Structures are given as structure tokens and as C-alpha cells.
Computed example of a mutant assay.
Amino acid sequence: MSATVLDAPADDNLALREPDERKRMSAPAIKLFFKVADLWGLTVDQRRAILGDVSKQTYYNWQKGSVTSLTRDQLERISLVLGTLKGLRLVFASDDNAVRWLKANNHEFEFAGRPPLDRMTQGSINDLYAVRRYLDAWRGMK
């Protein structure tokens, strides 16, 4: 799952509508999400918000490896996190610098003086998109 849903061809996005495909992708996707969340030092509540406000029980089941099938929304959220990680790694020389930026107050319009991570953890998938788009624009992408 190196490419993100956003980078995938339209046919791949349609595949997320298929229950078998979502089931196949779910365990590897959540495993990658936990690795990124650990790298960024996210709290359990931040992780749950990014995943779409999943319950604590569901979160801990996933953490133990008990993942049956994520929803399309959850897979897209993880895809956005992976795309954000990719963007951060293209913009910053080190993961430490990237995490510092993610957690530092930012006075750009999109962040209103708050850290980009705060925007990501508001619970809406649109907030995840906003940070991803910001990084894409920063690196000169459309």
C-alpha cells in the first residue's frame, strides 16, 4: 500500500466499493497507520479522531490485530495520512523536522494559528484533505 487512494487510478478507487477488496487492504492499512501514528507521537484520542472517531473498543481491537474490514471512509482516511507522510518527507529533510512542523502553530489561513495536526484531528475527512492539499501545493503540485 505504498500509493495512496488519491494517487490511484479511478478503477482502484472503485475497488474500495468492493467488500472483498476492502477486507484485503484493511489489515495492512491499519498496520501502516499505527506505524505513522507512532512516528508522529499521536495520542489515542488523536488516532481515533483521524480514523473517523472510532470507539475505544474498536481502536484497541485494531491495535491488537483484530481487523476484519475497514470502511471505505476509514481506508481513505488512512490513505490521506500516508499521503501526508509522503508530502512531509518530500518537504522536510528529516522526520523530526516534519513532526515539529506538524505540531507547531501555523499562521497560514488553513490552520488559523494552530498546528496542522490540530486540523487533522478535528474529525472531518475534509480536514485531512486540507493538510494533504497544503503539502501538495507546498511542493508545487496541483
Rank of each mutant, 00 (worst) to 15 (best):
S2A: 13
A3I: 14
V5Y: 03
V5W: 07
D7L: 03
A8W: 01
P9C: 02
D11R: 11
D11M: 12
D11Y: 11
D12H: 03
D12C: 04
R17K: 12
P19V: 07
D20L: 15
K23P: 05
R24E: 15
M25Y: 02
S26F: 06
A27P: 04
A27F: 09
A27L: 15
P28R: 05
P28G: 02
A29T: 05
F33I: 11
V36Q: 13
V36A: 12
D38V: 11
L39W: 03
L39F: 05
L42C: 10
T43N: 08
V44L: 05
V44H: 08
D45W: 01
Q46A: 14
Q46D: 14
Q46I: 08
R47P: 00
R48I: 09
R48T: 04
A49Y: 02
L51S: 06
L51V: 06
L51K: 05
L51Q: 07
G52F: 00
D53C: 07
V54D: 13
V54K: 13
Q57V: 15
Q57W: 09
Q57K: 11
T58Q: 13
T58W: 01
Y59M: 09
Y60P: 02
N61P: 13
N61F: 12
K64R: 15
K64L: 15
S66T: 11
V67S: 08
V67M: 09
V67P: 08
V67H: 10
V67Q: 09
L70Y: 02
R72M: 11
R72F: 00
R72W: 00
D73K: 13
Q74Y: 01
L75F: 01
E76H: 01
E76C: 09
I78Y: 02
S79V: 03
L80E: 07
V81G: 02
L82C: 11
L82P: 01
T84W: 03
L85W: 02
L85D: 13
K86A: 14
G87H: 06
G87N: 10
G87T: 09
G87K: 08
L88A: 04
L90T: 08
V91H: 10
V91F: 06
V91K: 14
V91N: 06
F92G: 10
S94R: 03
S94Y: 01
D95G: 00
V99W: 04
R100T: 14
R100C: 08
L102W: 00
K103D: 10
A104Q: 12
A104F: 01
N105V: 05
N106Q: 06
N106S: 03
H107W: 08
F109R: 11
E110M: 05
F111L: 06
A112H: 13
G113W: 04
G113I: 05
P115M: 09
P116K: 03
P116D: 03
P116Y: 03
L117H: 03
D118A: 11
R119Y: 04
M120V: 04
T121S: 12
T121N: 07
T121I: 09
Q122C: 04
Q122Y: 00
G123N: 00
G123M: 02
G123V: 01
S124H: 14
I125S: 12
N126C: 01
N126H: 08
D127V: 00
L128V: 06
Y134H: 12
L135N: 11
L135P: 06
L135W: 02
A137E: 12
A137P: 01
W138L: 15
K142M: 12
K142Q: 12
